[in-house]
Design a protein around this nucleic acid. Structure first.
Lengths: 245, 245
DNA sequence: TAATGTGAAGTTTTTCACAGCC
DNA sequence: GGCTGTGAAAAACTTCACATTA
């Protein structure tokens, strides 16, 4: 049995690849908006800021969605990438923390590519609870568990000060959420089976500082390839372990 | 051979290492706040969510700042990490875009660990220009070049809609900034010599979706090590090329 | 004795180069 | 002819294991 083991998005993709797929997705959407029907691996790689070999290797892990001698059909590839990333179903996101950042995120209408519904916005501040932000009303974080159950939120975005981040994170996990995006400037611990990603301006600025500090070294400039001409930084690496069994 | 090529922070650190240094920095600050004087590589690794071998390898690239049989002095290591990351000098950050996100970032007082001064906040909206946000007054982005020169900003944070991000980015680069952190949900192209990092909720959610979609696979559970028990995702990878000469 | 620092081994990721197909 | 898909080579990164040193 099992005539074809290839093209199994369910099988487990390297973290670095997943991170790049999101970039390709954005580049493809951009091409689509410009009315471009087909792209070559070179063109897409250029727009994405990666090498064309990396791009082809990445895409080949999902299956053979290109046509030799021609390239990739933008819309088709977009479909397959979306499917691979799990964007065909809808995700219900609860934002915890309606301070400056939480409000900004909630109002951020173009919530990336669609597929992510913000279903709740919570806070503990009585002055903020009840306010209308975007299409949402801020609910009391004291009822976090109830709100998560009612809205069936399956992702949480933490827009909280560092001091309360861990305890709220624990409650969110206890409420059954296993995908968390934290904007809190602190290290969080989550149990196995929960995926946590972290976005942090301080970290990013520090990395920029490192590169700025050492100035641009007098690197050699003989690279005939145009593929390395631009600069783009991105992230990757998400670890998680199996269920507690 | 080559008796001592080590301990040269100026020599170029792997991108993955730089990303982790920022985590160690945060963990160390946390230890410091708790009044802890010394940490072992095991303890610091645990708090940072990495293996102790990785931690020691990383630190050894900076030099030998630990004491065998004892561990690392928190304050001392903090100093050395800060120096390695270029955080001993001050960086002047201009935030371009005073919409919801830009305002949130500007008000974000604990700007990570200190070392980053927000020196300007710019926008094009006449209704926003002149407003006071935090300790700043919003200035007209039409004068971007003048503002950057006057404030001697050497880092820029872009909190802009995708539609104008590239053109503003170009102006920022033309103004001489070579370190840019973009929150705009779009791919940006910058010339060689400029370091760009990108923070993007859509990307992060998509990566979470991927992991959530494939559920937690029934991985084998025989790992005796406790080092992999928690989950933390972080970023890395920043490419840049030599000066335009 | 305890815990760092580090060569060496192992694993993952990227690049190369070209076979295969349109 | 042109461009994808992919094995093989190269590079980067992580883990292991232990010599080393306070």
């Amino acid at each position: 049995m099992a005539p074809d083991d290839r093209a199994q998005p369910e099988k487990g993709l390297p973290a670095a690849v997943v991170a790049r797929l999101t970039i390709y997705l954005r580049a493809l959407n951009s091409f689509l908006a410009d009315g471009v029907d087909r792209v070559s691996s070179d063109a897409l790689a250029e727009a994405s800021g990666v090498s064309s070999s990396t791009l082809r290797k990445d895409l080949s892990q999902l299956g053979s969605y290109g046509t030799r001698g021609v390239g990739y059909e933008v819309e088709n590839l977009l479909q397959h990438l979306s499917a691979a990333l799990g964007l065909t179903r809808d995700w219900r996101v609860a934002i915890v923390g309606a301070g400056n950042l939480g409000r900004a995120l909630a109002r951020y209408g173009g919530f990336g590519t669609r597929g992510f519904d913000v279903v709740a916005l919570l806070d503990t501040d009585p002055q903020i609870i009840g306010n209308e932000i975007g299409w949402l009303r801020v609910t009391d974080a004291a009822n976090l568990e109830a709100v998560f159950e009612r809205t069936r939120a399956n992702m949480a975005v933490l827009a909280l000060p560092a001091s309360v981040a861990q305890s709220v994170c624990d409650r969110v996990v206890a409420a059954g959420v296993r995908s968390i995006l934290s904007f809190a400037p602190t290290i969080l611990q989550v149990p196995p089976g929960v995926t946590l990603r972290k976005v942090d301006m301080a970290t990013e600025l520090q990395i920029l500082a490192y590169h700025a500090q050492r100035g641009e070294s007098g690197g050699e400039s003989g690279q005939p390839s145009a593929a390395a001409a631009h600069t783009q930084a991105h992230d990757d690496a998400a670890r998680h372990r199996g269920p507690s069994a």
